[in-house]
Design a protein around this nucleic acid. Structure first.
Lengths: 159, 159
DNA sequence: CTTGATATGTTACAGGATAACGTTTATCAA
DNA sequence: TTGATAAACGTTATCCTGTAACATATCAAG
């Protein structure tokens, strides 16, 4: 299992929708959704799992879209900056965003057995950092929440 | 400002206490608190900030305690595994734990202006991952919570 | 004393990321 | 149309992070 959500779903449809959302967002904000950027997002959506920059670069290279690391990193930066993809710090890898457009603090559930990654919502409003933190006066601008464990499938398989 | 907590505190005392706690824990669990491991923990406590493995290695090398990367990484692994230090994924760096002994899910507050790192508690019980996540059936074994923003001091300085 | 487990030392390299510089392409005002 | 400017791309070279693999040393238990 390598799915981005643990439940089954219409893969083609979510790819189409995510691409459409990115396209529209770029048009609306005068952002340049170039072939490389588009292709990298497609790869993330097709792979439907956390992918390393160099893995993506390999494909770009095969397709003649770029041969050096900066090409991949720049495209990934663009996607992350604009909310079309996220970086999983824990894995030094990237995933397509499952909720483009929505303003959200993603929380990732990483299965240590099958490497599947699911994107959920962390709820900053509910105070996932606890009351104590708010009292320190720290101004949170961005948060990374990543949980490692077992996905439903793998948890069951080990019973 | 490079402190590990944003508030002032007795630096020497917290170093002494953390070392004592590590020593006791190792004795209790028959763990080998070797010179290298001890020294790395000291360095983290003295530095009192997030430090890269290679930065630590530089000091070990100067002191004749080890010259190659695996030496530092192995010591750091030991410290992290046993809860004496944490890895900040976001920075690819390590910090001494501020609450050794207590069973906790650390949440780090990283100031993007001065690089100070504070360790707070995330509250898994309160559900920092939200109800929706629990419903997926994912079994969380370990969680990384890292917030980037401005510490009280830097936030004020920019007003 | 020997066996086994644990820790260390070293080489060599894999994998992740970016600085710096030059070239192309798109945009837009004069 | 042209010239100026910014944005994106291409490439080189290098840095930082991390680990596999293997040799050596240390130490406690049988």
């Amino acid at each position: 299992m390598q799915a981005l959500g643990f439940e089954h779903h219409d893969h083609h449809r979510c790819k189409r929708e995510a691409l459409a959302a990115a396209e529209e967002h770029c048009a609306r904000h005068r952002l340049n959704f170039t072939p490389v950027r588009r292709r990298v997002l497609e790869l993330l959506l097709e792979g439907h799992r956390a992918m390393g920059a160099y893995e993506i670069l390999d494909t770009l290279r095969e397709e003649g879209l770029g041969a050096q690391p900066p090409v991949a990193y720049r495209a990934l930066d663009f996607l992350v900056t604009n909310g079309f993809a996220h970086k999983i710090e824990r894995l030094n890898a990237f995933v397509a965003c499952m909720h483009p457009g929505e303003d959200h603090t993603p929380a990732f559930l990483i299965c240590r057995a099958c490497d599947a990654v699911a994107e959920a919502h962390a709820d900053p409003a509910r105070g996932f950092l606890g009351q104590a933190v708010r009292e320190t006066g720290f101004v949170v601008e961005q948060a990374v929440v990543e949980a490692v464990g077992l996905c439903p499938g793998c948890a069951e398989a080990r019973t």
